[in-house]
């Protein structure tokens, strides 16, 4: 359809371009919140959309995750064995439900992935305090479906990667310079819908529960 392309571009270029006032365009939204304030806002926003937020630290996060798995009665947990978190959990496997590793292409185990995984655990690239948001970048270790298909998503967020706004995160983390991954994702709560008579329901297509562990 290169004819369509040529025609469209020809019509668009034939037009005298409007002069635009761009003075407002570049302003970058960010807030001077200290770490405690960022954590407070993040937690408040997440809880407002029914996500669970657990405060932990480097010393005890493993206990926190183990307790979450226990309380939710998980039979298994899907994770990447290569992340810092995945390695630690693997070394303490006896404290966790059966560990499943995302090691094959989805085609090779789609049935199991779709119908037999209880929860997926992922790391995060950071968080956003203003909106209560997790940032996830897909990678060979932590593929897109890990945070999408299982009914529960457990995410680990390091609080020193908590930015005040999305704009700040994009700039501070140098997204443009790094180059975007196949899939960059913002997650701000469990999957939800208000399509039936404006009544909120959770777990429409994505995870029904989102559990954030702050370290």
């Amino acid at each position: 359809m290169s004819k369509a392309r040529a025609n469209i571009l020809q019509r668009l270029t034939a037009v005298e371009r409007p002069v635009v006032d761009l003075s407002a365009r570049e302003s970058l939204s960010r807030f001077d919140w200290d770490k405690a304030e960022r954590i407070r806002r993040f937690t408040e926003r997440m809880q407002a959309v029914r996500a669970e937020v657990h405060q932990a630290d480097r010393a005890n996060w493993l206990d926190t995750v183990a307790t979450i798995c226990q309380q939710k009665g998980l039979n298994n947990l899907l994770l990447s064995p290569t992340t810092e978190w995945g390695q630690a959990i693997t070394q303490n496997a006896e404290r966790f439900p059966t560990l499943k590793y995302y090691e094959r292409s989805i085609e090779d185990w789609k049935q199991e992935m779709f119908y037999e995984v209880d929860a997926g655990l992922t790391s995060t690239l950071g968080g956003i305090a203003e909106t209560g948001t997790l940032i996830l970048w897909s990678s060979p270790d932590e593929p897109r479906t890990l945070s999408l298909v299982p009914p529960i998503h457990i995410a680990i967020l390091e609080t020193d990667k908590l930015y005040s706004t999305f704009a700040e995160a994009v700039q501070e983390q140098g997204w443009l310079e790094q180059g975007l991954p196949t899939n960059a994702l913002l997650i701000s709560g469990p999957s939800r819908s208000a399509d039936i008579a404006q009544v909120l329901a959770y777990g429409v297509h994505g995870p029904k529960e989102l559990v954030v562990v702050l370290v």
């Binding site: 209560g132 899939n183 701000s188």
Partner: peptide, 24 residues
């Protein structure tokens, strides 16, 4: 639109599955 501070998902897609990726 709906008075939400942000939607649950904001999905930024920059290409198909790469050779070493496992889904997409």
């Amino acid at each position: 639109a709906t008075g939400q501070p942000i939607t649950t998902y904001f999905n930024m897609i920059s290409g198909p599955r790469k050779p070493d990726e496992k889904d997409g």
